[in-house]
């Protein structure tokens, strides 16, 4: 897991916290609010509030990371005892995937994000991360229904569809892939992971399955699979 270096970690955590701030108070650090086009291409903007050159995602620049964090958090919001995209580190999952298994979707994401920002600025005069949660939901609904204007490739529906799919993957894929942090997604739904065996009495139970541990590809976790 060489990609999980400390500086990258810090980058992603800050982007995710930014998303939380946006959802909570409608305020974001200036760095996150930078014009998307300005950040495109990895050119680090000057100033203390911007990330240093060594702090970067595996694929996303800082502004895009903040947008993805905010968007995915609206798709699967975090709440007490109900882990969402931020808790599961969905951003980290997508960032790693785009640097690896889904590298062919890099252009899809770049163009999709640019179109999203243009749409938000055109409609609300603000980037996505600066919108209030209700406005962010309006934007996502417009994408889902193909009503958001100015999308060519990807189409609004396609962009929504991929973001939803990748959010679900980041929530529920094995933590090995960078999301589903501490089995957050599996705990949300009560999935015990890759159990090698279920017994006849397991199969006869009408109750939630709660035998420890949750089984992942590299790690196991104690504690009931379901919510407390």
């Amino acid at each position: 897991m060489t990609k999980h270096d400390a500086s990258r970690r810090a980058f992603l955590v800050r982007a995710a916290v930014g998303a939380g701030a946006a959802a909570g108070a409608g305020l974001v650090p200036d760095a996150i609010a930078q014009n998307h086009d300005h950040m495109e291409g990895g050119a680090a903007a000057p100033g203390a509030q911007h990330p240093s050159g060594s702090e970067h995602g595996a694929f996303f620049n800082h502004a895009d990371a903040a947008t993805i964090a905010a968007f995915t958090e609206r798709l699967m919001p975090s709440a007490p005892d109900k882990p969402g995209a931020r808790d599961a580190d969905v951003l980290n999952y997508i960032d790693l995937a785009l640097a690896g298994a889904y590298a062919e979707l890099q252009d899809f994401y770049r163009r999709g994000l640019a179109q999203l920002e243009a749409y938000c600025r055109g409609t609300y005069k603000e980037p996505f991360v600066r919108l209030k949660p209700e406005q962010q939901d309006e934007v996502i609904t417009a994408l889902e229904n193909g009503k958001a204007t100015g999308f060519a490739y990807p189409t609004a529906r396609e962009f929504f569809g991929i973001l939803r799919t990748h959010t679900m993957e980041g929530m529920f894929a094995d933590p090995l892939y960078g999301g589903n942090k501490d089995f957050a997604g599996w705990r949300l739904v009560g999935f015990p992971g890759a159990q090698a065996v279920f017994t006849p009495s397991d199969m006869q139970s009408k109750q939630a399955f709660s035998r420890e541990p949750i089984v992942g590809l590299q790690t196991i976790a104690k504690g009931p699979a379901g919510r407390a």
Partner: peptide, 24 residues
């Protein structure tokens, strides 16, 4: 598995496919 369920289990009419209501 949960990925397959999230991809293929349509929520009932009136429940969206994302957001807090979908999570719940």
């Amino acid at each position: 598995g949960p990925i397959g369920t999230a991809m293929s289990m349509d929520p009932p009419p009136g429940t969206p496919k994302w957001g807090a209501a979908y999570r719940d």
